[in-house]
Amino acid sequence: MRTLAKSGTEQTHRTPVRWYILVFLAPATLIYTVFAIYPIIESLRLSLYQAGDGQGIFVGIANYAKLFGEPLWADQFWNAFKNNVLLFVMHMLIQNPIALALAALLSIPNLKGAAAYRTIFFLPTLLSVVVVGFIWQLILSPLWGISPAFMNWLGVGSFFKPWLGLESSALITITLISIWQYVGIPLMLFYAALLNVPEETIEAARIDGLNGWWIFWKVKLPLILPTLGLVGILTYIGNFTASFDLIYSIQGGLAGPDYSTDVMGTFLFRTFFGFQAQLGDVYMGATVASALFFIILVGVGLYLFGVQRRLQRYDS
């Protein structure tokens, strides 16, 4: 920061130090550093320690060895990781295509009611997961939900299953609820990107003899590829961190039934705060968080150096 303030004299002659740059930057940088960056770095550090008297004891990578080596930990970790990957894949295969399709329809020029549709599609995204979780429990619960009655009324009552309560279907049900809630975000991003495709390009394609479907496929889609990449990485990050909220509020900290919906977030929460018989462990919590950090880092790295670079080259 000191070099920053000093710099003014270097570039220009006879100008005073430009303190205002510091004044503009310092508050944001300070809060961000103390409450976002420092905790992350400190967590990485803590993952190399274990509880001792008062201060932690440096143990190197022992915590990681435990996390990946001891079956009790490793099983939980890989189970949560697998569920996260499944969650990610399902979002990519279901949520993002739906979002793209809806955005494509919405971006049709002069579509009547586009603004209303847009508002409605984004509404669920605004809701707290607590609300969303409860809504869907109210709908799906075999005891007090409305689905059994509703499906009876439709004459398909025998197909009803307590989807959230079955190991085989809990994760996919959670995924669909999550998609129902969050489809609005990729939808908005796609929509904005589609609106930014220049009208002339589309007209040129039309003159070249392409019809609506092919214009979307051959002209618009390639042009919004960078947004596809962005949505991909946002989905990835969201699945590894934000998925906690929905699962915690629907299935609780144990991510039942029998950990079938356990993800890194709930695993981290249990490790850190403890649950039932197991005590919370700050250092193992930090280790799980750090493992998650590296998982996200790999994803972001792949995105920045692989996907984004290639997409931009294609774009230009």
Partner: peptide
């Protein structure tokens, strides 16, 4: 324009990619 402007620019937007939740353990302590 000032020395380190690019660095600070990148530093300040890192948080988009690295969720702050990952620092929860140390954050609570802090």
């Amino acid at each position: 324009r000032f020395p380190g402007d690019t660095f600070i620019g990148i530093y300040l937007v890192l948080g988009i990619m690295v969720p702050i939740r990952l620092g929860t353990v140390a954050l609570l302590e802090l």
